[in-house]
Nucleic acid binder design. Structure first.
Lengths: 198, 198
DNA sequence: CCTTTTAATTGAACACTGTTTACTTTTACC
DNA sequence: GGTAAAAGTAAACAGTGTTCAATTAAAAGG
């Protein structure tokens, strides 16, 4: 078959990302298959390559979608809190919750790695930075004015801290080590750091 | 061919793990191939399945080897320090160094995940605990006596903290976020936590 | 020592994977 | 209407993990 008028390029892109994301959510990165996605959206595998260029391109697009959903989840949570609430705690909880609810899609963000010599596309970087920026805003609000300029580096470090706890929770390391309350531990480490910045 | 007297079961196991680990070190989890390992050790793929039961069994054995090497690396580092040195800092540095030197094999520890309903074998769990125990010893030494009993939970949390920083360093997240000195950040977060336990 | 049992080893077969490419069909444009 | 470009297909290729009947060599039994 040749060119069909079923969908525009943009629509087709959206359909494949959407079904691909569903697939990733259900079976996880290890069992994800580009061919299976093609089959489910009713196009051939060749078309998927036509739109995304490569397998890596498809995965990046799907992971990009996950990052968008993550940002939405985080913003929705913060939106529900006022300025008096412990908003950073809310952000940490949202980090864990999103990862647990969408564990396969979330894990795929880290299971997939580009070849060593290839940089992620700019659109992907922007989505990561967007999440970091939201958190940074909350971190900055908790620092004394004289140290506000350190908010970016502290935020990166706190993200890594929370990520480590979240990752060990979802990959089974904490189960092996009999850790019962990883979320509380993550909150405690963040509190420890902030105590020194005020 | 049938039964050969070339190697005992234990020798064969060792040969395959050793070559498998070399392979993992070179090409990483994504491009690792059990068939390729079989070819390189001069046995058929069927024999590999005979010895390890499954692909997952082989990967667990290889990752187990990585954990052994990691423990050795950590102990060698601590052995070179005396009681007056900042031994915990040495342990953190060794964590990063090992991960960087053996990045593919190290990443495979986290790239690979067992099916949700399957627990890792006891031998694997023991190796993880062994690493944690070495660190716990150093953490306990830095706590005031009245809080020594909290060493295990604090150690788990500090491991997660350092892991998060190390992971973000190696998977490119910190490059995207323009973090220049992840190791210093990891050390700082550990120091923040310890400041509250003394 | 010779036979039988048993364990080890093989390689072909199967159903999948990502990737490339020659080919066909449709659309858009002159 | 004819032509060039774009879109889409499906087959081919070289891999993968996994299974299993067949084969062979060592061990055990008499």
């Amino acid at each position: 078959m040749g060119r069909r008028a079923d969908h525009s390029r943009a629509e087709l892109r959206e359909i494949i990302i959407s079904e691909g994301h569903r697939q990733m959510h259900e079976v996880g990165f290890a069992h994800f298959s580009a061919r299976e996605v093609a089959k489910r959206v009713g196009y051939s595998i060749g078309t998927v390559y036509n739109v995304f260029g490569s397998y890596d391109g498809l995965i990046l697009a799907i992971n990009g979608r996950t990052l968008e959903l993550w940002l939405d989840y985080l913003e929705a949570r913060l939106c529900a809190l006022d300025v008096d609430d412990d908003r950073l705690r809310g952000a940490i909880d949202a980090y864990f919750e999103f990862a647990i609810i969408n564990r396969h899609a979330w894990a795929a963000l880290y299971d997939f790695r580009l070849p060593d010599d290839i940089e992620p596309p700019e659109y992907y970087r922007q989505k990561v930075i967007a999440i970091m920026t939201v958190v940074e805003h909350e971190v900055a609000a908790l620092l004394k004015v004289s140290r506000r300029s350190e908010a970016p580096e502290l935020t990166r470090s706190l993200l890594a801290t929370v990520h480590g706890h979240c990752f060990f929770t979802l990959n089974g390391t904490f189960r092996m080590l009999e850790e019962k309350d990883p979320l509380a531990a993550a909150r405690a480490r963040v509190a420890d750091a902030l105590a020194r910045y005020w």
